[in-house]
Design a protein around this nucleic acid. Sequence first.
DNA 1: ACCGGGATGTTCT
DNA 2: GAACATCCCGGTG
Length: 217
Amino acid sequence: MTPPSEVIPGRRSSASRTHQPARADNGLPGVFYQREPWVVASELLGKVLVKGETAARIVEVEAYGGVDDPASHAHRNRTRRNDAMFLEGGHWYVYFSYGMHWCINVVCGSAGVPGAVLLRAAEPMAGLAVMRARRGAAVRDTGLCNGPARLAQSFGVTGSLDAACIGTDRSGDLGIIDDGQACAGDPVNTVRVGISAGEAIPWRWYVPGSPHVSRPR
DNA sequence: ACCGGGATGTTCT
DNA sequence: GAACATCCCGGTG
């Protein structure tokens, strides 16, 4: 399914000017997710989060591990909340934060070994009107998906998707696809945001210069 | 611009 | 009871 007639920022409408056919959207194979979260994380930059008519290019992520990562929800025990982190890579982990926000994670690694990548920010590409209906009519483009809870809200994601499989095309519920566009620039690697344990672990990556990143610098 | 506080529920001490 | 992978709004420069 192709998105509606909406203009997609950052995408050239020059397919007719080249001999190469436009590259098809590709879902990511299961093995992509079945690696350590800190390996998968930076490779998710530039990929496209899709759900219905909404789409956005991922520009900021953070990796979270298991018992060795004091900032991880799986640092202590397996509970009902963090259970999805123990699934095989290729599922969603969606948790409720601060009593009012939802956050979206990509589960990574092998079954039984907790690990996930938090999707912190993305550049809206399609369905911006739907995002505004969820986030607020006056919200700027750069305010739609520049934070983990804002991103989830723009996509209408709640806990009902926790532990679901990651979709591989635009016809599914919530998925990730590769549209062939490379990440613009080398990812910037920093410490993670908003945590009070494991502050020294540099497991955050973002696209340099993107105005859609949640907290530049 | 930068700050401080409040909203709100699940998890853990 | 306190902490929490957050966000919004209203204060002050």
